[in-house]
């Protein structure tokens, strides 16, 4: 059960990383990156590292997309 969940989460990570990198629209790219960070935090929790998982859920899915959104808003989005 845990092994299957592990493989599913890893597949989601790889696919969402490719989408976040390849997407033309910067806004959707940032949103996919936030989902990627959250799933990565769940995976770390499963791997027995709860404190880094909570820190990543705060930083990766909270602070970094906020900073990216502010920067996109100030620079006028996609060129």
């Amino acid at each position: 059960m845990t092994a299957t969940l592990n493989i599913l989460l890893l597949l989601f990570l790889v696919v969402s990383a490719i989408i976040a990198v390849r997407c033309r629209d910067l806004l959707s790219s940032v949103i996919v990156f936030a989902a990627y960070s959250l799933v990565m935090a769940v995976l770390w929790q499963l791997q027995g590292a709860p404190y880094p998982a909570v820190a990543l859920a705060i930083f990766g899915a909270g602070a970094t997309p906020l900073l990216l959104l502010a920067a996109i808003r100030k620079t006028g989005g996609q060129e």
Binding site: A17, A20, V21, L26, S29, V30, F33, Y36, S37, M40, L43, W44, P52, L56, G60, T64, L68, A71, I72, T75
Partner: peptide, 16 residues
């Protein structure tokens, strides 16, 4: 900005 997103993906891979 894509470069910054790439940096974040790279370091979460290392931490994983």
């Amino acid at each position: 900005i894509k470069k910054v997103i790439g940096l974040n993906i790279m370091d979460t891979g290392i931490f994983l």
